[in-house]
Computed example of a mutant assay.
Amino acid sequence: MHVDDEDTEEPQGAHVEAASDGAPKPKMRRRSLGKVRRELTDEELGSSGVQKMLLDDLDRLEGAEIDLKSTLDKFHQANTSLQVANDRLKTHNAFEILSTGTIAIGSVLIGAAFNWKDDNILLWLMIILGVALIIIGVVAKRVRP
């Protein structure tokens, strides 16, 4: 059986391009309904059965549109919440790095100060600076935005 390109369910090359402006992609035809005539004559449109089917499809699609809008609103709310949480996490990580770094540098200064026991001024300067950095690190760890 020969199948035309337009009868397949798979998108083909240039016919179906991703719409970058948010427009929906055209619905692809099913193979089983590929050869079915889609246009309705005025006589067919005048039939009450066809009108009822079209109104039923219209109601169904309006309901689907409402559901999609609701889902889109929920998505935007969740996306905004995620961005706020990510910004808070970045700030939290910056304070963690600051506090850990100052505690580490303060500890190294206190440890290194005892290598200069001969120079009393340098010894006490390094100990005071090391203790100050440790205090700053602990305060930064306790006080977070």
Rank of each mutant, 00 (worst) to 15 (best):
M1V: 05
E10Y: 13
Q12E: 15
A14V: 15
A14I: 14
A14M: 05
A14T: 15
V16L: 14
A19Q: 13
D21H: 08
K25F: 10
P26Q: 08
P26M: 01
S32G: 08
G34D: 05
K35E: 14
V36C: 07
R37G: 04
R38A: 12
E39K: 12
D42F: 09
D42L: 13
E43N: 07
E43K: 12
E43I: 11
E43W: 05
E44Q: 13
L45W: 07
G49V: 02
G49N: 03
V50P: 07
V50A: 01
L55I: 02
L55D: 08
L55T: 04
D59S: 04
D59G: 02
E62V: 04
G63V: 02
G63H: 03
A64D: 03
L68Q: 05
K69F: 00
K69N: 02
K69Q: 04
T71V: 03
D73A: 14
K74C: 07
H76G: 07
Q77H: 13
Q77F: 13
S81P: 08
N86Q: 06
D87K: 10
D87Y: 04
R88D: 11
R88C: 12
L89V: 06
H92S: 14
H92P: 10
H92I: 10
N93P: 04
N93W: 03
E96M: 11
L98S: 08
S99K: 05
S99I: 01
T100W: 03
T102Y: 10
G106R: 01
V108W: 02
L109M: 14
F114H: 10
F114C: 00
N115K: 09
N115Q: 07
D118Y: 00
N120I: 10
I121T: 12
L122Y: 00
L123I: 01
I127W: 00
G130E: 11
L133E: 06
I134D: 00
I136E: 02
I136R: 01
A140I: 02
R142S: 12
R144Y: 11
P145I: 09
